[in-house]
Each structure stands twice: as C-alpha cells, then as structure tokens.
Design a protein around this nucleic acid. Structure first.
Lengths: 227, 227
DNA sequence: GTCTATACCTCGATAGAC
DNA sequence: GTCTATCGAGGTATAGAC
C-alpha cells in the first residue's frame, strides 16, 4: 500500500520507476530514455524551484535540459506531469531524515541529530526545499491524497515515538506534532527564505549562515528537551 | 530617509499615501479614487496570496474587485505596479510586532509577547504572510533595495537590544539574529504551510491549530531564554 | 527520437467610444 | 471613469517531416 512506501526506507531519488499517474508512457526502459528523463527532471527542479510552478515555462525547462520543447513533451505529456513526477519522486528522499528517527536511540540525541540532518538538507538541497514550499504554499494542488496520507502516517508514527519518550520521562514534555513543525519551519527557513536571511545577517555571517544556524538550533532544541 | 519610515512607528495599512515608484498617477485624491484603489489592493491581496504573483491574472484581480480589467488598469499601470504597491504598503504593518519590542521592558516578557503577536498575525492575516513568503521565495524581485535596507536596519536595531539583554545576563545566551529567524519561521509556518499543518495534525487539533501552537511556542522560547 | 512549423489559447496592456 | 473590442506577446501542446 501507498503508506508503506513512505514509512519504509526506500532509495529516494533513484527510485523513479514506480509509474506516476500522469505520465504518458510506461516506465522508461532504454538507456537513452532514462538519461533524458533524468535530465528533464533535473532541469525542471532547477526551473520550478527558481520561479515556481506558474512562473516556469516548458520552453525554459527544455532549454535547461538542452533539448527542444517538443522533444521534452515526448517524454512527459505536460508541464503538470513533470511537476507531479518531480514532487512524488523527491518527497521520498525529503522525508528520509525523519524516517531515520530511531525509537530505540537516545531520545535527545535522536531529535538533535534529526534537526542537524534537516538543516544539512536545507544547505545542500535548497532547490528541493523551495519546490515543496511553493507547492504547499499554493495549497498542494499537485500532491495526491495518497501522498498526503502517507506523509500523515509517517508523522503520526514518529510523533508517537516522541510522545513515548515524553511519557517515559526521557525528554521534557513537548507537543510532538508541534515539535516536528518547529524543526521543519526553522531548518527549511534557511533554504526557503535564503535571500532574506542573507539580507538581514551581518555581512560576515551572510556569506554562510549555516554554521551559526546549526549552533543556534542545537542550543534551541537542547534547552527545549532538557529535563 | 527610508530607513526611518520602518524603524519609527507608523500607522501601517492606512499609511498608503507615500507615492510608490511604479504608480502612474500621483497620490489618490477623490473619494472614489481612494475607494477603488483600496478595493483593488484588497482583491490583489486575495488573489496574489492564493496563487502567487505568476499565477495571478489582472483579469482575476479585476473580477475579485468587481470591476473591468481596463478600469483596473486605469488605476494601476500594470500588474507589477499593483504587486509592488501592495508589498510596500503591507510590509510596514507586517513589521509592527517587531517594532513594538521594547528595550525598556522585561526581556523575557518582551520576546514572548513578540512571539505571541507574531503568531496572532499568522492566524489573523495569513494572506499577508503568504504574499511575503511567495515574494521572498522567488528571491524578492519586487522589493526595492531601500526596503531591504530598512528591514535590515530594523532587525539590526532589535538584535542589538536582544544582545544587550544577553550581555546583562537577563536572558540566556542566544544568537539574536537567529533567534529572530526562529520566531519568524515558526510563527509564519502556521500561515504559509497551513494546509500541511492541518493535513498532518490529528483531526481535533487540525480544526484550529493555533491554541496548541501558542502553548508550544510559549514553552519553546521560555525554555530557550531561561537563565 | 528529434526536429521545424504551427495551431490554439490566455494574458497584459491599449484604443477609442461613451 | 468606465466600457467593448482588440492587438501583440508568449504560453502549451500537436502535426508531421526526417
């Protein structure tokens, strides 16, 4: 079932073979098809994350992928199909840090490590962060009900783990769902609002906000969870 | 100078008379002009915040304002002019909660009150939050250098206040800029990613996430700042 | 599989009557 | 100030040759 695909570990970006609903053709087969499809999705990530879904043009994506517009549309039936495929493929990888939160680990360490992994994703994959931010900001019109349910199932599961730690007195009392939102919000902020962060920070830090951000968030969640 | 207009208290949304660069006409004069201009900006806020700048159409804004497209374009020279005017006007009010942070108040109370005011803005003015989120996400192409400098000046000033409190031992050591980012990120999250928050939360809380969010953030920043 | 050419549409903005 | 009509640019997607 769909939920299992998000609660179980998968290979993320390379696991692109599960046929998305909106694609014309069946799963890609030949080497050149795989290569072109991957090129298109990489180009689409670049363009969508920079100017949003509505700001992007098929021609712009085609140019970024170094192919003609009709050729691109030979691989994907529409602009929407590219976007949907991209979202579904990347979401899996995007949730890896949360999926790795281990119920059997040391509670405080597990959560702090999650925060740092998530911050690293904002640093190393800001395009993915902005892609999702843009989608959710507009009301998530291209995320299927299945996908939303799978996301909820994963968060429910991890929230239960955190609640267990609270009940066992291993971390200070917290609202597990809002704690997760706090982690998402603060880490993704450094990708999604990057220009604002850099515009506001003193010049020395603006060049690379992430080292001080990492220390700040470490401090923040350490104090939040200390018993 | 421009910076003063943001660091000093102004009357926010009603202070729309300072002529924005991109408007055709001078400041509105007749009663009907004021009324139509206000209608257009209200409609534009509704549309831009729902579908973003690129997703919005002049016709859509005109319909929301219950006028014809050419009539709307009689008041604003272009779609971009509407957007720029809207951003400049609302930013002032948007920064009121930060501006109200009082250097002479009780440090912890001042910061906690700021958090709550900001969360209330996310609850009561989600459209404004999404408007800015969309603009910053795309790299803030419609915010002038003056506006960015004014924002930085305000944050610099308040960061210095917070640093003063830290130096005086009145709150726990924190990075003032990142503390402000933490407040922005976590409070705006409930407006910008509203659909995700509601999709993930258990049903009872999803109906209104704000009461538990308020308690969670109170807890979070109390523990962060406790000496 | 990839191209040129193009059909078809929507959008931003303007012309010009009233 | 407000309208109908329309222009021209730029967008998605397809036709059809190679």
């Amino acid at each position: 079932m769909a939920i299992a695909s998000l609660t179980e570990k998968t290979d993320g970006i390379t696991g692109k073979l599960k046929a998305p609903a909106l694609m014309i053709s069946a799963a890609p087969k030949t080497r050149i098809q795989k290569r072109n499809t991957a090129n298109i999705l990489e180009a689409a990530l670049e363009v969508f994350s920079a100017v949003g879904y509505n700001g992007a043009t098929v021609d712009g994506i085609a140019q970024a992928a170094k192919m003609s517009k009709p050729n691109l549309l030979y691989y994907f039936s529409s602009k929407e199909a590219i976007h949907v495929t991209l979202l579904e493929q990347l979401l899996d990888m995007w949730l890896d840090p949360l999926r790795a939160l281990d119920a059997d680990g040391v509670p405080k360490d597990e959560i702090l490590a999650y925060v740092q992994r998530k911050l690293e994703m904002s640093r190393d994959m800001p395009r993915e962060s902005r892609l999702f931010a843009n989608e959710v900001l507009r009301g998530a019109p291209h995320l299927s009900a299945d996908t939303k349910n799978a996301l909820k199932a994963l968060v429910d599961q991890k929230a239960a783990v955190i609640q267990g730690w609270v009940d066992a007195g291993q971390i200070a009392p917290v609202h597990p769902y809002h704690l997760i939102f706090s982690i998402w919000a603060q880490t993704q902020h450094y990708a999604d609002f990057d220009v604002q962060v850099r515009a506001v920070l003193p010049e020395a830090e603006a060049r690379d906000p992430f080292p001080t951000a990492a220390r700040h968030l470490q401090q923040m969640f350490e104090r939040m969870l200390a018993i």
